[in-house]
Simulated scan of single mutants.
Amino acid sequence: MTSPPVRTQQFDSRDPAAIHRFLSTMYDPRLRIHSRNGYRLTHRRVDTGSFAIATTRQTGQLDIGASALGGLVIGRAHTARVDRACAGSTNRFGPGDVFLVTRPEAPCTARWQPGEVELCVLDLSVLAQVATAAPARRPGQIRFTDLGPADAALARQWRNTTSFISEVVLNNPTTSAQPLVIGNAARMLAAAALMVFPNTAFTEPTNADRHDANTATLRRAIAFVEEHAGRDISAADIAGAAGVSLRAVQLAFRRHLGTTPMAYLRRIRLGRAHNDLVRADPGRETVSAIASRWGFASHSRFTARYHASYGVPPRETLNA
C-alpha cells in the first residue's frame, strides 16, 4: 500500500487578498477574515494526506469566521492569544493552551491576536481506525462533546505527541518518506485526540464482542497481520479481515495473548527488521533506514526494543 508523498508548503505575505486565498484553499472555501490594520502572515504546513501540522504566525488582530473546516482541527497556542466562539460559548486561549478549533463541520468565529499558533488537521477516517462510536456492530461517527481537553495533564500529552511527530517523524526525510511511519503517526494523533478531548467513542466490548473474541478470530487476525505486516494496516483493518468488530479483535488479543493487535503487529515488524539487519550490507544500509522501513520512527526507541528482544543492539547485528 502506498501513501501520498509528504508535502511541505510555505507561505509569507502582507497582502490580505493573497492571505485570504491561501487560507481559504488550505482550510475552508468560505473562510472570512477581517483586520483593521495591515498585517503579515507566515505559514508552514507539512501535509501527509491523513494529517497535517501547520505553524502559522501573524502580526495583527484578525477576526476569522469558519463555516466548515475539513477534518478535525486541533489548535495549540504558542505565543498568541485566541478568543474562540462556537456553539454558544466563548473561550480564551493563551500560550500553551490546547483546544479543538470547532466540531467537524460546525461554524465558529475567532479573534486571533498577534503571535503564533499550531494547527493539526486530522482526517476523520483515521479516528475510525483506532476507535468506534457506538456499541452497534456497524461503526458510527464519533462526536466530540467538549472543545477543551479533559484536564491539564492530557493537554500536556497532546503537546508532547505533536512535538514528537513534528520533530522525529516529519523533520526527518528518512522517516517521513515511509508509509508505515506516517500511518502510525496518524493513528497516534487520532488516539491522542480521543484521549484528550471528551467524545462518544466506546472502548468496552459488548456481549457479542466477547463471544467473537475466540481463538478462531485470533487465528484469522494473526494470519492477516503476518501476511500484510509490510503494509500500512490498522486495528480496524485487522478486525475487518477477521470478520469481527474492532473491540472484539482487541479483546481476542488481550484475552489469548495478553497484548493488543497493534503491539502484536509491532512485534512482527521487529522480527522482519531483524531479518533485514541480518541480511543487509552494512556498507549500503543503516539501522535507521531499516527501522523506518518497518514503521519505527524513533531510532532510540527501536534500539531499546531491539536490544530487549535480541540481547544486542541492532548495529551489532548489522555489522556481524
Rank of each mutant, 00 (worst) to 15 (best):
1 M>I: 14
1 M>P: 02
2 T>Q: 13
14 R>A: 11
14 R>W: 02
15 D>T: 01
19 I>K: 00
29 P>A: 03
32 R>Y: 13
32 R>G: 09
32 R>L: 14
34 H>Y: 12
41 L>M: 09
42 T>A: 12
42 T>I: 08
48 T>D: 05
51 F>T: 01
55 T>C: 13
55 T>P: 09
56 T>C: 06
59 T>Y: 10
60 G>L: 07
60 G>E: 07
62 L>R: 07
65 G>Y: 03
73 V>L: 15
73 V>H: 08
73 V>Y: 05
82 V>M: 14
83 D>K: 14
83 D>G: 11
86 C>R: 11
88 G>M: 03
89 S>F: 15
89 S>L: 15
91 N>G: 13
94 G>M: 13
95 P>N: 11
99 F>S: 08
100 L>D: 01
100 L>E: 04
105 E>Y: 08
112 W>S: 12
118 E>H: 09
123 D>F: 12
124 L>G: 04
128 A>E: 04
129 Q>N: 11
131 A>S: 03
132 T>N: 02
133 A>T: 05
133 A>M: 07
140 G>Y: 06
140 G>I: 11
142 I>E: 06
146 D>E: 13
146 D>C: 10
147 L>R: 08
156 R>F: 13
156 R>E: 11
159 R>M: 05
160 N>M: 15
160 N>D: 15
163 S>M: 08
165 I>W: 00
165 I>T: 04
166 S>F: 13
166 S>E: 15
167 E>I: 14
168 V>P: 02
169 V>L: 05
172 N>F: 04
175 T>H: 00
176 S>Y: 06
177 A>T: 06
177 A>S: 07
178 Q>S: 08
179 P>S: 08
188 M>G: 09
190 A>V: 02
193 A>L: 05
193 A>P: 01
202 F>Y: 10
204 E>I: 05
207 N>A: 14
211 H>M: 13
216 A>M: 11
217 T>I: 10
217 T>W: 04
222 I>V: 12
223 A>Q: 14
226 E>P: 06
229 A>N: 01
229 A>P: 02
233 I>G: 01
234 S>V: 05
234 S>R: 03
237 D>W: 03
248 A>P: 00
250 Q>L: 07
256 H>F: 10
260 T>C: 11
260 T>P: 06
264 Y>E: 10
267 R>F: 05
271 G>S: 06
272 R>Q: 12
272 R>W: 06
274 H>G: 01
275 N>Y: 03
275 N>E: 07
278 V>S: 02
280 A>Y: 02
284 R>N: 07
288 S>M: 11
289 A>D: 03
290 I>F: 01
290 I>P: 00
292 S>D: 04
293 R>S: 07
295 G>L: 01
296 F>K: 03
299 H>C: 12
300 S>V: 12
301 R>F: 07
304 A>K: 11
304 A>E: 12
306 Y>I: 04
306 Y>T: 05
308 A>H: 12
311 G>V: 03
312 V>D: 06
312 V>R: 15
313 P>A: 15
316 E>R: 15
317 T>D: 00
318 L>A: 00
320 A>L: 03
